[in-house]
Design a binder for these strands. Structure first.
Lengths: 223, 223
DNA sequence: GCGTATATTAAGTTAATATTAAGCGAATTT
DNA sequence: AAATTCGCTTAATATTAACTTAATATACGC
C-alpha cells in the first residue's frame, strides 16, 4: 500500500513517515500543495493524508485536483481549524475522513487502516489463513503457531501478497506498493527479498510453493 | 502517558507535578486557561486535570475548547465550588470526572489511574506477568520476588512497554508518552535508558530478550 | 537449444541501534 | 555554601542488521 503525506511541518512529517513505514506502507511526502499534486500526477497512491493549511496552493484546491486525478484514492484531511463548515466542505469535495490537530498518532494509524481495509479481503488486525497467522500489530507472522522472523521489507511484501492473495501481483505492482519514490525500477532488490522470504518460509513450513512464481506475470501467495 | 495540569495556585501545582511524575507520567503545566488551550493545540495529552477557577479564560470555556480539540482526552475537573449545577455542567460538557477541593492527593492519583486504565491491558494496581511483578503503588518491579531497582525514567519506560505489551512500541511513541514538552525529538537519550534497563533486567533475570528490538519498528516487552 | 525471465550468491553500502564515557544540574549531605 | 551523589542527557564511536547491487546460475517457454 502506498501513501502520500502532505504536511508542511517537517518535524511532524518525519514522525508520521517513520510510524507509517513501520506499518509496512510505502510513503512519499510533499511539503506544499503544488508538489503534492505533481506527485499524484506521476504516482498512484492508495491513500493521501492532506494537511489543509498549506503554502503555495490552498489545501482545498489540492484536494479537488487530487480527487480529479484519481477517483479511488482515499483522502484523509488534517486540519488545525476546527470549524464545522470547513469540515463539511472537505467531505463534500471528496475527502474520506477528517482529523483535527492535534491528534494521537494511533488515531491516524487506525483511520488509515480503516480506510484501506475495504481493498483487502480481510479487515481485522489479526488474520488467519490456513496455518498462517498475521498479527498486524506485532508485525508478526506465524505458521502453526511457529513464529517466522521477518525483516521490515519482507514483512511488507508478504503482507501485501497475503492481503491480495486472490490475485497475481506483478513485480511492478509490488515495487509500486512496497517501495517509495526513491526505488530504482530496474533494481533486482525485490527478487532478493522474495528469495529471502521463501527461504524463511520454507524453513518454517517445509513447503516451497507458498510464494508462487507465475512467469511473465508475477507472484502469488498460496496458502 | 502524558498529562496536562492546569492550576493557578503554583504551590499546589508543584506538589501535583512532583507526585505525578513519581507515578511515571510525563507532565506539562499551565497556570491559566489561555495557555492551557494553546498547549492542547500543540500536544496530544492522554489526560488533563483542569481547575475550573482560572484567570484569563473561564474554566468551563477551556473545557469546551480542549474537548473540541481532542475527543479522546480524559478530563478531570477540579473546583472549590461544590455547587451541583456546575458539576453537572462540567460533565455535560465532556469532562470525565470531577473533584471538589480540598481533596487528598491520593484521591486524584486514584482517579487518574482509573481513567487511564482503559487504554491498558490490565487495570489493577499490581500486575503480574510471568515472573514479573509490577506494583504501580510502590513503583516497584520484581522478578521472582527479587526487586529490580530502577530510576524514575526507567520505571516509566518499562511500565509503558509492559502495559502495551501486545504491541510493538516505536521510539517516537515512547518519546511522546514518556517525556514532556522539553524532550528533544532527536535525542538519543531513550536508547541510553533502554540500555540501562536491559542491563538491570539482565542482572536480575539472567535473560536478555526481555526488551526486544524490532529493527525499523520499535521495542517490545517479552515476558 | 536460444533467449529471456527469474533465482541464487556473495559482497558492498547504508541505516538503525548499542555502547561508552563525559557533562550537567538538581537535590542532599556535610 | 562547598562537596557529593544521582539521574538524565549528550555526543562520539562501535556494532549490527537490513537493504541493495552486481555478478553468475538456473529454469522455462518458444
Amino acid at each position: 500500500m502506498r501513501i502520500l503525506l502532505v504536511e508542511d511541518e517537517s518535524q511532524l512529517l518525519n514522525a508520521y513517515v517513520k510510524g507509517l513505514k513501520q506499518d509496512g506502507y510505502a510513503i512519499d511526502t510533499a511539503s506544499d500543495g503544488a508538489s503534492a499534486v505533481e506527485l499524484c500526477e506521476i504516482n498512484t497512491y492508495d491513500l493521501v493524508v492532506l494537511d489543509i493549511n498549506l503554502p503555495k496552493l490552498n489545501g482545498i484546491e489540492v484536494l479537488k485536483q487530487v480527487r480529479t486525478l484519481n477517483k479511488s484514492v482515499k483522502i484523509i484531511i488534517v486540519s488545525a481549524n476546527r470549524s464545522i463548515e470547513q469540515r463539511i466542505e472537505g467531505l463534500d469535495l471528496g475527502a474520506n475522513d477528517y482529523l483535527t490537530k492535534p491528534f494521537d498518532f494511533q488515531e491516524l494509524r487506525a483511520r488509515i487502516r480503516a480506510l484501506l481495509r475495504r481493498d483487502f479481503i480481510s479487515q481485522p488486525k489479526v488474520l488467519s489463513i490456513n496455518d498462517f497467522n498475521i498479527d498486524l500489530n506485532l508485525h508478526q507472522i506465524t505458521y502453526q503457531g511457529k513464529m517466522i522472523l521477518l525483516t521490515l521489507k519482507e514483512y511488507t511484501i508478504l503482507t501485501y501478497l497475503i492481503q491480495n492473495r486472490e490475485r497475481i501481483i506483478s513485480s511492478e505492482e509490488l515495487l509500486e506498493k512496497c517501495w517509495n519514490d526513491e526505488a530504482d525500477p530496474f533494481s533486482e532488490a525485490m527478487r532478493v527479498h522474495i528469495y529471502a522470504l521463501r527461504k524463511k518460509i520454507q524453513e518454517a513450513t517445509q513447503r516451497d510453493d507458498v510464494i508462487q512464481t507465475v512467469k511473465g506475470v508475477g507472484y502469488r501467495f498460496n496458502p
